[in-house]
Simulated scan of single mutants.
Amino acid sequence: MPQLEKFLKKKSHYVQKRISKPNLEQIWKLMSELKKPMMTFNHYGGRMSEISKSELCLVATLIFKIQYSVNWKEGWEEVVETNLERIRRLYDYMTPYV
């Protein structure tokens, strides 16, 4: 039976403006370098887009949430630090876009 991932770290950001295609390409490039972290996008939209922004609260003006996650099996200190550094690097890189 394969061993399941035992360790996990997650972080998130909220996005109010679209991320341009060239910037997305740079983000994908970094993710390829880092190999391990994942990003999940939770889109906020639907009927909210029909209401003027002046009538919405801040939370309702969000376009989407990005969740960053990384998981691993080994508990060795170097493996833990490597994976935590990966997600920190991605999270920090994304800060200007959120």
Rank of each mutant, 00 (worst) to 15 (best):
V79E: 15
E5R: 12
P37H: 02
M1L: 09
L62E: 14
N83L: 04
D92L: 09
S12L: 01
R88A: 10
W28C: 01
K6T: 14
T82W: 10
I19Y: 03
S32A: 13
L58C: 02
V79G: 06
W76D: 13
R86I: 02
Q16W: 14
L56Y: 03
W28M: 02
M31D: 00
V70L: 06
N71R: 12
Q3R: 12
Y93P: 01
E74R: 09
K9H: 11
M1I: 08
S12H: 15
L84F: 01
Q67T: 12
M94C: 10
L30I: 01
L4D: 04
M94P: 01
T95K: 15
V80T: 13
H43G: 00
I66T: 04
C57Y: 02
P96K: 09
H43P: 05
I63N: 05
L62K: 13
P96G: 09
Y93M: 02
L56N: 05
Q3M: 11
K36I: 03
P37N: 05
Q26H: 05
R47N: 06
E25R: 07
E25M: 12
K6I: 10
Y91D: 14
K65V: 00
Y14W: 03
V70N: 08
Y97L: 14
I19D: 02
G46P: 06
V59M: 09
V79F: 00
S12V: 02
P2D: 12
A60N: 11
M94S: 10
R47D: 04
M48T: 14
R89S: 11
L24Y: 03
I66G: 02
Y91A: 09
S49V: 11
M94G: 00
Q26K: 15
R18C: 04
Q3C: 08
D92V: 04
S12G: 04
Q16L: 04
L8W: 14
P2M: 09
W72N: 10
W76N: 14
V70P: 04
L30P: 03
K53M: 06
S32W: 03
N83P: 06
E74V: 06
M48G: 00
S69Q: 13
V15A: 03
M31A: 05
R47K: 13
